[in-house]
């Protein structure tokens, strides 16, 4: 098992309205190809942990390592480029850019990365859309798509740069049960067919049960599932 993500004693404080330790010395290892769910009650710190892991929140103590690179104390420009290359995001409210077509939305992170020519990016984007079953929607404005379609386009966008980890914040939270199942199946297939690592925050018990590993948090600590393959 090769670890993709490692944390060592990550702690974080909120100072508003008063000083409060939201994460308490979190040690966590996520292996390649793992589909991991972060669970817990509201306010247990699961979303906060996820944003620390996402490198967008840099205000924490401890160490974070993704794909063999230490990310503690790096500057914002480095982290932006790192996210672009190594991390894909899926959010609860899909967050596509409304003025762009589905295809353009998927292409944007790859254009930012600048590794391939525009033609190659386009064909790769269409491939990803096909995997997610929305290639027929490619040229529609993203604001014209249904919620389930939008979320699938968002997953295609998360995949476009072949990231080491996909992070999802309630990826099915805003979908009906049909679309919810569909998205879960897609994520499940990604981990099993393509060995894609996925970390998702959820409070959906069914969703969590069907994943490979559930990490449960309470009061800023991991209370279940912190050892490998628990």
């Amino acid at each position: 098992m090769e670890p993709v993500l490692l944390t060592r004693k990550i702690s974080k404080y909120f100072y508003e309205p008063e000083k409060f330790q939201v994460l308490k010395e979190i040690d966590l290892t996520v292996n390649k190809g793992e589909f991991m769910c972060l669970m817990g009650k509201s306010g247990c710190g699961k979303s906060t942990l996820m944003y620390v892991l996402s490198t967008m929140d840099t205000d924490f103590d401890g160490e974070l390592e993704i794909a063999g690179q230490s990310l503690t104390g790096r500057d914002q420009n480095f982290l932006s480029a790192f996210r672009n290359k190594h991390i894909g995001f899926i959010f609860q409210f899909h967050y596509l850019l409304p003025e762009f077509t589905a295809l353009q939305n998927v292409m944007l992170p790859a254009q930012k990365l600048g590794k391939y020519s525009k033609e190659e990016i386009e064909s790769r984007a269409i491939d990803k859309l096909r995997i997610l079953g929305v290639s027929d929607q490619a040229l529609k404005l993203s604001s014209k798509l249904s919620g389930g379609q939008q979320q699938r386009v968002a997953i295609a966008r998360a995949l476009i740069n072949d990231p080491d980890i996909i992070m999802g914040d309630e990826p099915t939270g805003n979908l009906d049960s049909y679309n919810s199942n569909l998205v879960f199946d897609i994520l499940h297939e990604l981990t099993h067919t393509y060995r894609q690592t996925i970390i998702a925050v959820t409070h959906d018990e069914d969703f969590a049960k069907r994943s490979d590993r559930v990490v449960e948090m309470s009061d800023g600590r991991i209370v279940r599932g912190d050892s490998e393959n628990a």
């Binding site: 996402s54 967008m56 480029a81 790192f82 996210r83 672009n84 995001f89 992170p109 930012k112 990365l113």
Partner: peptide
Amino acid sequence: AILKAMGFAGKD
């Protein structure tokens, strides 16, 4: 916010 999450830097 989403652009920044996708890896666009502040200067972009």
